[in-house]
Each structure stands twice: as C-alpha cells, then as structure tokens.
Nucleic acid binder design. Sequence first.
DNA 1: ACAGACGGAATGAACATTCATTCTACAAAA
DNA 2: TTTTGTAGAATGAATGTTCATTCCGTCTGT
Lengths: 211, 211
Amino acid sequence: MNIHSTKATPIQVNPIGKREHIIDATIKLISEYGFHGTPISLIAQEAGVGAGTIYRYFKDKDTLVLEIFKQANNAFKETLLHGYDANQTIRDRFLHLCRGIFQYGIQNPYEFKFIEQFYNSPYGTTLRREKLFCNCGDTGQELPLEQLFAFGQAQQIIKKLPLAALIALAIGPIVFLVKDSIAGLIQLDETTINSTLAACWDAVKQDTGGR
Amino acid sequence: MNIHSTKATPIQVNPIGKREHIIDATIKLISEYGFHGTPISLIAQEAGVGAGTIYRYFKDKDTLVLEIFKQANNAFKETLLHGYDANQTIRDRFLHLCRGIFQYGIQNPYEFKFIEQFYNSPYGTTLRREKLFCNCGDTGQELPLEQLFAFGQAQQIIKKLPLAALIALAIGPIVFLVKDSIAGLIQLDETTINSTLAACWDAVKQDTGGR
DNA sequence: ACAGACGGAATGAACATTCATTCTACAAAA
DNA sequence: TTTTGTAGAATGAATGTTCATTCCGTCTGT
C-alpha cells in the first residue's frame, strides 16, 4: 500500500462518514421496526461499526433518535418551502406545499416513515400538544399551510372548518398514499400525484356552486 | 373426567372478566407505547393479574396481540356496516361508511390507535400486501368502500383515480383527525364531523363544473 | 380433599451502556 | 527514510438491567 497522495479516496478512508452511517442505519431500521424494535446492536451492524462507537457520537439511544428527528424534520420543512412564492395564488401555494410532501416522501421514504412514527409516539404527541398550547416555538417556523388556510378563509376561498380539519384534509390523504407507496402497494406516477393534489384542493376549497 | 354438567366453555367458568381485563389493558398500553414498548409485566399490572396468568389465556405475546387485532378489526368492520343500505345513493353510502370511521375512532380510541399501529407494523404491511396480491381473503370481507368507488366511477360520479388514491382521500383525513382528537388536540363536535365528511366527498366526487 | 386457577418469584435470553484494550494516523526523533 | 511516541478513534467483551416465559406453592370453589 502506497502512502503518498491518498487524497482521491473520499469514501471509507475518511474518519468523517461514520456518523452518517450510524444515522442512516438508524433511520432505516427505526422507520421499519420502531424505536423499541431496533436494538443498538442492530444499528451498529447495519452501520458497519462497533456498538461502542455509536456512543462516541451520541450520548444515548434517545439522543440519537431525537437528533435524527430534528435533522429530518428540518430537511422536510426545507423541501416544502423550496421555491415557495408568497405571491402566487392561494391554490398554487397550496399545491406547492402539498406536492412537497409527496416529493419528500418519495425521495426520502425512510426519513418520511421515521418522522411519521416520531410524531405518533408519546414524545411526538407531547411535542405537538406543547406547540399548540404554548405557541412557544423553538424554531419559530410553523407550517405555512396554517397561515395559508387562515388567509384563504378570510377571502372565502377556503372552507369554514377548524384549522385542524383543513390540515387533515390536505395532509391526511398524502401521508396515507405515500405510506402505501413506500410499502409497495401502489406506484405513484406524476399523473396520479397531480390528480390527487387537485382532489385535495377540492376538499378544502370553498364551494362555488358545483353540485 | 366428570360427565354431568358438560362445560362447553372451559375458560369462562372462572371469575368472568379476567381475560377481558387483560385484553383491555393490552389495547390501552400498546395503543400508546407500541408492541415492543409495553412489557408483559406492565400489562399484568394494568389488568390487575399476575404475569403468569396472562399465559393461561394466551399462548404468548404475539398471539395475544394478533387475537386482539382480529377482534378489534371485526368490531370496526361491524361498526361501518351497521345500518349500511346498499340501496342508498353512492354519496349517502360513502358518508355512512366514513362516518362509521369517525364513530368507531371516537368511541374506541384505544382500539382505533391499536388497529392503526398494527396496520403500520411490518406484520400489518405484509398482511395488506398479501391481501392485495393474492386476493386470498380469509374472512372474505373487503371494505365495501372499494366496491362503492368502482361502481361510482362507472357512473361518472367518482373521480377517475387509482382506487388506492380514492381510499386515501376518503380515509386519510378521517384517520388524521381522529388521531388528533384522541391526542386531545381538537374537539370533534357533530358539526365539524359533518363538514369534514362533506369535504371528503368533495375530494372524491367527479367535478360537475364548479370552478 | 381435589382440580384447576392464580400470583409472582425464578430463569435465561436480549438489551443498552461502559470500559479496558487495540488500532490508526501522524509527527518528532534518529 | 525509518523508527518510535502519542492522542484520539474504534472496538467488542463485560456489566447490569429488563424482558418474555416458565414454574411452583397457594388459594378457591366444589
């Protein structure tokens, strides 16, 4: 093995990347088996590191998962906001945000399931409740979907429904479909996505006389 | 073996309720903490029985959970089908079925979350996939929602979308809302439920010219 | 007194976390 | 260039805990 000029090997030789492998393995396994269902030993195996190594990068299992959630959740929000134009019509902005959920879910299936699981765990529920009641956002960033709905209601464009119901009407079907897609139960082509998005809009838009 | 007084029910003879207590405790705990997150010891404590007693009624933890799922799932289907009238309009039948989901979820929050979790577990996913591909139903009973959609599509009443997408549009928001309701994030009154159901119909119904 | 139901301690397997040790990279010394 | 010293990274066997399941002495209705 030669020593000099070893700069062209960016893959395994670098010390950097081990942390990423651990994170990737954790996301993949927990998204499938859940927190309690995936032992550290399995994460270590999947990541190709020793079990002890994980504790060089993360204090404990909880911290590991929490950190991953924050990271994935931020990436998710960024996907939604990328290219978001506050000057577009309400409908177009709505479609943009909802399409973002599809996009993120299809491109990051493991992260998507991970986030979903986290939100449905006791910890995630507590988090949402606190956000709801205290409004003491740490990141400050709230889903712009809520503002959009409030704004649209004032203009008689969006149905008069509790915000939570509108959000359920918009997000519910998409989350449902993406999960089916990840499970391999359906193939999501562009046409299906577009029609589904249009249908979601039909659900939240104010009636204009159509029977 | 004694001859007289043939006991056809070997389990129910003893103080009735023990088995039910175990089931109830399991549903409650697993719906909150998940399968791997709820130890048998905790179930025993919550049910007010000894840990060993559980094994008098169920072979092991898996069997316990599987049996509960079947039971809850059947009760769920019954709720949906109760009062279902195949002679009503497609819209009314749709609303009936969807309202049933709300009803069951609100009246049986623990069971609802339990079923949801089960379907999203690896086991549940496998089950759904098998049902989809083999069509070898054990109970035979499929959600009538699918038939309804297929029928409605033929009559141009329902949007031309993959069945999975239609089901997502109908069920997704309701599941989403019920979970929020169970988490205490929203109060579901009759008005909200009705409006949400109407919105779900808007999502799946064929356009009639409204802009 | 007897048969079965019951509780909960006992058991062994699996788990999260720790720690003594080994490995690696690199720089100073020769 | 080669050797040696060293700090930090990495490891996986060891540790103490928790789990699912079993086992056995006790209790209850008959």
